[in-house]
Design a protein around this nucleic acid. Structure first.
Lengths: 230, 230
DNA sequence: AAGTTTAAGTTAACGCCATTGACTAAGCCA
DNA sequence: TGGCTTAGTCAATGGCGTTAACTTAAACTT
């Protein structure tokens, strides 16, 4: 029963990058509740408090994790001349990341990380808008709409996938707590489509949302041409 | 220094409704970190653990708070025959609630509460879509898009308003942590609009997003008419 | 109305967690 | 080689959600 003595990690063997990688491993395998300093220490084969030499607080670490999600999403991305394809691609990448690392996405994807990868992501979206012909203040507003939509939906997807009890074996979602003794006639519209509600494909909803955005940009550009020719 | 003895609360004097009301009061005044069982007990002038007679866990209580946010948003809402106005009105109400109770909104607005008010909200949105002429599976998908957008944006707004250090005295947002030593030339598009980024009006972004949704429904209906006349 | 039952409110405790301060030793520079 | 800096470690702390056992007042029974 003697506590197994761990050899002290050599000086400089830890880094923010390694800690973030370990954290994501834990989140993927055991969910958001498992991400504690104790568990992190075990994963790193280091003292639980060693992390504090690299992050000021848990929140700081989570921001770094979130920024790493941005980095993962952008890895290998190359801008093109097709702004539609770029906006779809960037959205798709965020969505993919949320599906690959749901707990991490639920935890940090709607946070402002203040990190380099987030800045790069901002730049990529703004570039696509610029290529489309959206500039200045308008670009910033549209950027914010896009980010809200893409990151909001992705974070929600992460939460859905990583919260046990919300997803059944077939992978479709349902409500844990049934709307108890309610008169169905009181909520006829909800009642009528209850069965459909359980069978929504989240990725279809997401791509619809993204298409909605792309179309709205197209419309804006069309409107601009009209007013120019007038 | 003797501990002030509180007279025991009489037997049925606590209720889920009163607890939720107290919780929202605390969240509004002191932010999400202040919502502890101890603080809640003080607010209710009751034992911290008394809450457990009414909610199975903290998470259950938060779901109830979230459902109350739905109730607040819907209070006084009356459906009309104008589906556009109804969708705007419902979105505006959620947004208003997020601005009035930011910490509560940040905490629970993208949760599935399983409560009655959520069900009523679902019914209201589906009704508006039905009036518009969107039914069945299509209605469910559009409903989900709408909910993701409205609740996602509102929850993000709540998080923004309730996280200290993200909002300056003038009310416009900025990043706490500046993107440290980065070559501006590496992210030219982000760099070019940095000053604009700090001056976005979130409510403008929100109404743009809602208009985008309404317009996309209109377009869908137009397309439907075209294919019918063909 | 008296006795019984039930459960809401209380009390005290437990275990987990993030965080801190003091300690240790490994790499670095003079 | 010897001191200095600091990453890694250890031990302790305070706050938190949660639980079990206890109290007591309302409600039910006959």
């Amino acid at each position: 029963m003697a506590k197994e003595h761990r050899s002290r990690r050599s000086r400089g063997s830890l880094s923010q990058a390694e800690i973030v990688a370990a954290a994501i491993r834990i989140l993927d395998a055991e969910g958001s509740e498992a991400l504690t300093f104790a568990r992190l220490g075990a994963e790193l084969q280091a003292s639980p408090t060693a992390v504090y030499r690299h992050f000021a607080s848990r929140h700081d670490m989570i921001c770094a994790i979130s920024d790493e999600l941005d980095a993962i999403s952008l890895a290998g991305y190359e801008p093109t001349d097709d702004w539609r394809a770029d906006l779809r691609e960037l959205a798709h990448r965020a969505w993919q990341t949320a599906n690959t690392h749901p707990a991490a996405a639920a935890m940090g994807m709607n946070l402002l990380t203040g990190g380099m990868s987030e800045l790069r992501a901002v730049d990529c979206v703004l570039r696509a808008l610029h290529v489309a012909g959206v500039h200045g203040r308008e670009a910033v507003v549209q950027y914010q709409v896009y980010v809200n939509i893409v990151l909001g939906s992705s974070a929600a997807q992460g939460a859905l996938l990583s919260s046990p009890g919300l997803v059944n074996p077939q992978g479709v979602w349902f409500r844990t707590q049934v709307y108890a003794p309610v008169d169905p006639a009181q909520y006829p519209y909800a009642d009528a489509v209850m069965s459909d509600l359980r069978q929504i494909d989240p990725s279809e909803v997401f791509s619809r949302t993204v298409e909605m955005f792309v179309t709205s940009i197209e419309r804006m550009l069309e409107g601009r041409e009209l007013s120019q020719s007038a």
